[in-house]
Design a protein around this nucleic acid. Structure first.
Lengths: 204, 204
DNA sequence: AAATATAGCAACCGATCGGTCGGTAGCTAA
DNA sequence: TTAGCTACCGACCGATCGGTTGCTATATTT
């Protein structure tokens, strides 16, 4: 009667963990990383709370696991496909394309929108490891973006004197607006607007 | 022994309500409108939960009251000061100035950043009156912004053929980025970056 | 002065929160 | 074959959630 579910093999256990994280990302993208609760997550997956929490120990560890997994999704979807595109403006433009697709198409993994945008707003005024992780990821991506801009300037594809950090700042703004447009307004022309905005930023 | 606190006069009661809403806006700007809890709010104000809730009835009504109050702050701080500035580009530029100051300076009322930005991200994937209110406010402000752009075009201050909604979209993106810059990174040069970005958007 | 209305309180409600604990079933290594 | 490890369970913990109720004390109305 008690302790029904049989213990799974190591590989199955890892699969369970991945299921938890995947479902956790989806919930967190809608309800935030705080709104992600162990009980709801367990109920969704048909497991016990203890079974869920056993994989992480604390809720915060679960939040960090969800963030790490989300960053892998972002890297895989946005950065990896343009890794071998010619550095500078071509890669920059390709990057903006994959980024748009990411925001538009990852509705299964992130039904509530990009988890980083959500988490950044949710934790920006707090302390702790979650906030630090979010800030670190944003900083890293901004830096890579700025580096790409710098390369484009050096190649002469953007006007000399262009401030790479300034351009990176503006690009981030456009994608923040796109995320809002998609999820708050459900605007279908959002991607077209984004492309036009980026054309302006990258026109020089 | 029981029921200690004396009943206040009507004017005092209204003052109490304002204190609740003001503190509620501050908490919500940090912890979100869901993270705003009756118990915490009551403890902060040195009152009972029932005393707090008595002014609103439900938590959702409290959330809506906080949103309405925040929208008054926004209107008073951002729109009102430019009401009598010459319509078109001058008012548009003045508006961007007051908006920057609002994000930068309202740290007492919104220690966690603009409440609308927070609420928009928090509720964009949900239903209900809170989400609808947020969306409605954003839509209204976007429309006013686009109207201003249109006027500027008609006055010849912006190139003919400029799409007002496109410009409004881009301006919103810049301010979303500014909000993030301030609260997630605490960047001191954020306002300067914003000004440069807006110059580009409004250059034509 | 008496009657009414109400701001606010203490106490309490069921539900849920994050988390702990002992136990069990099955995988795995000796 | 057996001993140990561990994924997972049900039950439970104290705290807190949003909300209700009965009351008191005062402000206001009559």
């Amino acid at each position: 009667m008690p302790g029904m579910s049989p213990r799974k093999s190591a590989v199955e256990a890892r699969h369970t963990r991945e299921r938890i994280v995947a479902r956790g990302m989806a919930i967190a993208s809608v309800d935030g990383l705080e709104g992600l609760t162990i009980g709801q997550l367990a109920a969704d997956l048909g497991m016990s709370k203890a079974g869920v929490l056993g994989h992480f120990g604390t809720k915060q560890a679960l939040q960090l696991a969800a963030l790490r997994a989300a960053s892998e999704v972002f890297t895989r979807t946005v950065w990896r496909p343009v890794e071998h595109v010619e550095p500078g403006l071509p890669r920059l433009r390709a990057l903006c394309g994959t980024w748009s697709e990411y925001l538009e198409a990852e509705r299964d993994t992130f039904p509530g929108g990009c988890l980083f945008t959500t988490a950044a707003i949710e934790f920006d005024a707090r302390g702790g490891p979650v906030r630090d992780t979010v800030a670190r990821l944003f900083t890293a991506w901004r830096r890579r973006l700025a580096t790409e801009v710098r390369t484009a300037v050096e190649h002469g594809d953007l006007p000399a004197g262009t401030d790479p950090d300034q351009v990176a700042f503006e690009i981030f703004g456009v994608f923040l607006a796109l995320n809002q447009e998609i999820h708050l307004f459900g605007a279908p022309d959002a991607v077209a607007r984004t492309r036009r905005a980026l054309d302006r930023v990258l026109a020089g």
